[in-house]
Amino acid sequence: MEQGLRRFEGKTAVITGGATGVGFSTAHRLASEGARVVIGGRRADTGSEAVERLRASGLEAAFVRADVADANQVRDLMDQAVRLYDRIDILINNAAIFTPGRFMDTSWEDWRRVFDVIVSGAYLCTKEAARRMIKEGVQGRIVNVSSINSTRALEESSHYNAAKGALDQLTRNTALELIDRGIRINSVALGFIDTPMSVVDGVKEHETDWFRDIYVARKKIPQQRSGQPEEAAGVIAFLASEDASYMCGAVVAVDGGLSITF
Rank of each mutant, 00 (worst) to 15 (best):
R36S: 11
V82C: 04
V37M: 06
R29S: 08
T126Q: 03
L54G: 09
Q73Y: 11
D116L: 02
V119P: 02
T99K: 10
A71R: 13
R75F: 03
R29T: 11
A50G: 12
G34W: 05
G21D: 00
D116W: 10
A61N: 13
L77D: 08
R113K: 10
I97G: 10
G41N: 10
L59Y: 04
Q73E: 12
V114Q: 14
N94E: 07
V119T: 07
Q73V: 08
V82M: 01
F98H: 01
M104K: 14
A66T: 07
E52G: 14
L77N: 01
V22S: 08
L77F: 09
A35G: 07
T46S: 15
R102A: 12
A62L: 13
S32R: 10
W108E: 14
I97M: 14
E33Q: 00
Y123R: 09
P100I: 08
Y123H: 15
S107Q: 09
R42P: 04
D76N: 11
L84T: 04
H28A: 13
F115Y: 12
N72V: 12
V64F: 01
K127S: 11
W108R: 12
R53G: 04
V114C: 14
R102L: 13
E60C: 08
R53Y: 12
G40W: 01
N93Q: 03
S107N: 10
V117A: 02
M78E: 08
R113L: 07
I92V: 03
S32Q: 05
G47H: 00
D70R: 04
T26A: 04
F24R: 01
F63H: 07
G101K: 09
F115D: 10
D89E: 04
V68R: 03
V37I: 06
F98I: 07
T99Y: 09
E49N: 09
A69L: 03
D89Q: 02
A71K: 13
G121V: 09
F24S: 05
L77W: 01
D76L: 10
T99M: 00
S120F: 15
Y123D: 15
R75H: 06
V64A: 04
A35Q: 00
V82Y: 00
E109T: 14
M104I: 14
F115L: 13
Y123Q: 14
K127Q: 10
Y123I: 11
R42H: 02
F115E: 13
A66D: 02
L124K: 06
E60H: 00
D110R: 11
Q73C: 02
R29V: 11
V74Y: 04
I90M: 06
R83G: 03
R83A: 03
I118C: 00
C125D: 05
I97Y: 14
R102P: 11
G23E: 09
I39N: 00
A71C: 06
L91V: 04
V64K: 03
T106R: 02
R36P: 08
S48P: 09
S57V: 10
A50V: 10
A96N: 03
I39D: 02
S57K: 15
S120E: 15
I92P: 00
P100A: 04
F103W: 12
A71I: 13
E128F: 15
R42L: 01
I92D: 01
D45G: 08
N93I: 09
M104P: 15
S57A: 15
T26I: 00
L124A: 05
E60D: 09
T99C: 07
I88T: 00
L54N: 11
H28L: 15
D105L: 08
A62E: 15
R87P: 05
I88R: 09
I39E: 04
M104G: 12
A35H: 01
A122H: 12
